[in-house]
Every structure is written in C-alpha cells, then in structure tokens.
Simulated assay, not measured.
Amino acid sequence: MGMMIGGYTIFGVVYLFTAVGATISIDSGEPQVGRPLLIPVAGPFIAASRLSSATAGLGLAMAGVAQLAGLGLGIGGTVRLSKSRKAAQLSAAPGGLQLKF
C-alpha cells in the first residue's frame, strides 16, 4: 500500500507544479509551451521540444520523468495490493446470497 500511496503522491505533486507552471506560461503569452504542460506525463516532453532553452527543456523533461515514475509506482503498488488481497466473491446458496472475502 505504501508503494501505491507514494507513487500517486509523487505523480500528483509533480503534476500540480507543472500545471501551475502551465497556467503561468499561458498567462505570460506562451500558450504553445503552457498548453501541453496540462497533459499528464506526456505534456512536459511535448513542451520541452518547443523550447529554445536547453536548461528549461531539461527541467521539463525531468518533470516528465518524475510524473512517469510516480504513475508507474502508483500503478505497480495498486496491482501488488490487489493481488495480495483476495477478491470478494458473491455466490448464490440455498439460504440466499453470500459475500465472501
């Protein structure tokens, strides 16, 4: 469960920062860079390709890598958690419906 929570937290925090940067960029007159940043995971890579500054491009690429890593950890943790717990089973019996965990 820790892997799932940590991964989704990393993804959410990094996406929040890129979304704030996107709105600032759009408001400052650079929508060609800001709009792609609103796309999760792929957006920073798209925006980095549209910049003329290598330093800013590297920063956006690192934000994309952090989003991708966080999402991967979150999904991996979710899969591990779902496999570790038994799924609930609903069955019909003569006495009625039974829900087993």
Score class of each variant (00 low, 15 high):
residue 62 M to V: 15
residue 29 G to W: 01
residue 89 Q to Y: 06
residue 44 P to F: 05
residue 26 I to F: 02
residue 9 T to D: 02
residue 96 G to S: 05
residue 93 A to K: 08
residue 37 L to Q: 00
residue 6 G to F: 05
residue 46 I to A: 02
residue 25 S to T: 08
residue 34 G to M: 00
residue 65 V to W: 11
residue 24 I to E: 10
residue 26 I to Q: 00
residue 72 G to N: 03
residue 97 L to T: 13
residue 75 I to P: 04
residue 60 L to A: 04
residue 100 K to D: 14
residue 28 S to P: 01
residue 10 I to L: 15
residue 63 A to V: 02
residue 94 P to M: 07
residue 41 V to L: 12
residue 76 G to S: 13
residue 45 F to R: 09
residue 69 A to C: 12
residue 63 A to N: 01
residue 19 A to V: 03
residue 4 M to Q: 15
residue 20 V to Y: 00
residue 5 I to A: 10
residue 12 G to S: 14
residue 20 V to S: 00
residue 92 A to C: 07
residue 4 M to R: 15
residue 73 L to F: 10
residue 44 P to A: 07
residue 100 K to G: 14
residue 58 L to S: 10
residue 15 Y to S: 09
residue 101 F to D: 01
residue 60 L to H: 05
residue 6 G to Q: 06
residue 92 A to E: 14
residue 6 G to M: 09
residue 32 Q to V: 04
residue 72 G to A: 14
residue 22 A to L: 01
residue 97 L to M: 10
residue 86 K to M: 15
residue 52 S to R: 09
residue 16 L to M: 09
residue 44 P to N: 06
residue 33 V to N: 04
residue 79 V to D: 05
residue 91 S to D: 10
residue 45 F to C: 09
residue 5 I to V: 13
residue 36 P to R: 00
residue 68 L to N: 05
residue 36 P to C: 03
residue 31 P to F: 06
residue 82 S to E: 15
residue 85 R to S: 11
residue 99 L to A: 09
residue 8 Y to K: 02
residue 74 G to P: 07
residue 50 R to A: 10
residue 6 G to D: 08
residue 80 R to D: 15
residue 68 L to P: 01
residue 91 S to T: 14
residue 84 S to F: 06
residue 66 A to L: 13
residue 84 S to M: 11
residue 55 T to W: 11
residue 20 V to L: 05
residue 38 L to R: 04
residue 97 L to H: 04
residue 6 G to V: 07
residue 8 Y to I: 06
residue 73 L to Q: 04
residue 87 A to E: 07
residue 60 L to W: 08
residue 29 G to D: 08
residue 32 Q to K: 10
residue 60 L to F: 06
residue 50 R to M: 10
residue 41 V to D: 01
residue 31 P to K: 00
residue 85 R to C: 12
residue 16 L to K: 00
residue 7 G to D: 07
residue 47 A to V: 04
residue 70 G to P: 04
residue 47 A to S: 04
residue 79 V to W: 08
residue 52 S to T: 12
residue 75 I to K: 00
residue 77 G to F: 03
residue 81 L to P: 13
residue 97 L to S: 08
residue 21 G to V: 00
residue 13 V to L: 14
residue 77 G to T: 07
residue 42 A to P: 05
residue 84 S to Y: 11
residue 85 R to W: 09
residue 77 G to Y: 11
residue 36 P to Y: 00
residue 98 Q to C: 13
residue 60 L to T: 06
residue 30 E to K: 01
residue 1 M to K: 12
residue 21 G to Y: 01
residue 23 T to W: 08
residue 51 L to N: 12
residue 33 V to K: 02
residue 50 R to Y: 02
residue 78 T to K: 06
residue 42 A to C: 09
residue 51 L to A: 08
residue 9 T to R: 02
residue 87 A to Y: 07
residue 61 A to T: 14
residue 5 I to M: 09
residue 8 Y to M: 12
residue 17 F to W: 01
residue 13 V to A: 10
residue 88 A to P: 11
residue 50 R to I: 06
residue 83 K to F: 15
residue 7 G to R: 06
residue 95 G to M: 10
residue 31 P to Q: 02
